[in-house]
Amino acid sequence: MIPALGLLLGLALGLLLNPSVPLWLQPYLPIAIVAALDAVFGGVRAVLDGIFNDKVFVVSFLSNVVVAALIVFLGDQLGVGSQLSTGVVVVLGVRIFSNVASIRRHLFRA
């Protein structure tokens, strides 16, 4: 419950403060969000599996975001930025889906 409230608080903060994202950061934002989403769903699944660990959650979150941004950056330098971004999104997307499937099995047994 408290993490959910925290998420809402963060959302509200972002919406209220409405900070302007510098232009150079904008290409990394979508990928970072997908990576964060993956970490969040992974965390929820771990909670349901009974093996949640705060350190792992934080580290996986940060490393996900950083690696995703790094891949985009590297891709841009190599001229294959969009393809690499697509790859990252596909991999993370598949992970999100299977984690959500597992969460679903835990919660609804279906």
């Binding site: 998420l7 608080l9 963060g10 972002g14 919406l15 934002l29 969000i33 969040v40 934080v58 979150f61």
Partner: peptide, 13 residues
């Protein structure tokens, strides 16, 4: 971390 995530989502959106 969770507050940060929410913030990130909102800013991204």
């Amino acid at each position: 971390m969770v507050v940060l995530t929410g913030f990130l989502f909102a800013v991204g959106a």
